Amino acid sequence: MQTSDITDTIFLQAVEAIDCGDIALLQKLVADNPRLITDRLQTTEEGYFKDPYLLWFVADNPIRHEKLPANIVDITNLLIAAVKAKAPDTAQYQLDYCLGLVATGRIPRDCSVQIPMMDALINAGATPGGGMGALANGNTEAASYLIERGGKLTLGVAIGLRRMDDTDRLLQTATTDEKLSSLTAAAFYGMADMVKFLLDKGVEPNGYPEPNSGFHSHATPLHQAVWSGSLETVRLLVEAGADLNAADKVYGATPLGWAEYAPSEGGDEAALLNFAQIGSYLKSAVNKDADS
């Protein structure tokens, strides 16, 4: 969603006040128009930001501006107080969902306000999640903080945060999907040592995590290893029997296809060299597989 898509004039003014850090204007708009807190913005957009509450705009997730105002924590606290006072029936849902948007967002992290914003929401009563969504979006500090504040630790998050004592314990009772999601997370971060650890524990390298796992469910561990740029991680998975011809569920591309596409996303010379080496290795593996 873009700000220009908002057709509700009063709601648009409130969102623009959030974006520019005009806390005085925002406070007046909220006081004069309680519906800004109690009602959802009606939109035609689908996906995770369909019909958002005003509070949710503090996270800039989905990204609209690539930045947050310097006083965004104060703005967040203002809106939290208004939600708790004026929308008690939906307050928990508004707070919990906003916490998820902040924890998984890139802009709060890049603006160095992710933890303070999360702190404000959790202190107000938001329920900390397990951190898998944060990990899936590259926010390891946010994932760790959610666990510190009471989020349920899962195998995938323990792997992603290298909490080995917890990993050994959780692995004993983990389901097949939890193990696969954990392997996918380790591959996503190019954590060759953790991938090897899981493979040595008998975790199968093929399959797609379930959508409710909290991690990327559209691609296999090998796809994610390719995207991480870690040739060592790719080798480990291929040698363990990862399917070279598996297609991701969004673009229908194989791991080799991901390696060939990755350079178009940019990167420095070292990253481009890594992807070239991964592509060469996978081509050789595919040809070898075809000949056998």
Rank of each mutant, 00 (worst) to 15 (best):
T3L: 13
D5C: 10
I6C: 10
T7P: 09
T7I: 15
D8N: 14
T9H: 14
T9N: 11
F11V: 07
A17C: 04
D19I: 14
L25M: 04
L25Y: 07
L29R: 08
V30F: 00
V30Y: 00
V30Q: 10
R35Q: 09
I37E: 12
I37A: 15
T38R: 14
R40H: 03
E45F: 10
G47R: 06
D51F: 00
P52W: 04
V58A: 05
N61C: 14
R64M: 15
H65P: 03
P69T: 05
P69G: 05
A70Y: 00
N71S: 02
I75Y: 12
I75V: 07
V83W: 02
A85N: 01
G105K: 12
R109G: 03
M117Y: 08
M118L: 02
L121W: 03
N123P: 08
G125N: 06
T127I: 08
G129R: 12
G129Y: 07
G131Y: 15
A134H: 00
G138K: 12
E141P: 01
A143L: 11
E148I: 14
K152G: 05
G156M: 07
V157Q: 01
T167N: 07
T167R: 12
T175D: 04
D177E: 15
S181N: 06
S181W: 02
A192Y: 09
D200H: 12
K201C: 14
S213T: 01
H218D: 08
P221A: 12
W227F: 09
L231F: 00
E232N: 13
V238M: 10
G241N: 01
G252S: 03
W258R: 10
A259G: 04
A259S: 06
A259L: 13
E260F: 00
E260C: 00
G266D: 13
D268K: 03
A271E: 07
A276H: 04
I278A: 07
N287T: 05
A290R: 02
